[in-house]
């Protein structure tokens, strides 16, 4: 039981962060506005969680210009995917053991 709880990753303990990782697990580069629409959250809230995940190197960011508008896209790193998968397994195990 203790192992399972240890496998739960603090970095993902938030609805928005779980959402960001879920979307990035099954999609390659996803831009900010798409994430915002999917997760139904505010600019500031989303930006701060993205930044936190990026600082932990769980996701990476790229900036492009589409015409004159900047477009920011995000992608999960291999490490981020692995850690998120571990987190999901831990969640599932926790459910099974209860």
């Amino acid at each position: 039981m203790k192992d399972i709880i240890q496998n739960l990753n603090k970095a993902f303990e938030n609805r928005v962060r779980l959402g960001i990782m879920s979307v990035l697990m099954v999609n390659d580069w996803v831009d900010f506005n798409t994430l915002k629409e999917l997760l139904d959250t505010t600019d500031g809230n989303l930006a701060s969680h993205l930044k936190a995940l990026e600082e932990k190197a769980l996701i990476r960011m790229k900036k492009q210009f589409v015409g004159r508008k900047p477009k920011t896209s995000f992608q999960a790193t291999d490490n981020g995917k692995a850690e998120f998968r571990q987190h999901l397994d831990a969640l599932e195990n926790l459910l099974k053991n209860q």
Partner: peptide, 18 residues
């Protein structure tokens, strides 16, 4: 339990929808 269950459901739905 209900929190984790809801988390997992939300994750699954987001993966599908996105």
């Amino acid at each position: 339990k209900s929190k984790e269950f809801k988390d997992l459901q939300e994750i699954k739905s987001l993966m599908e929808r996105s």
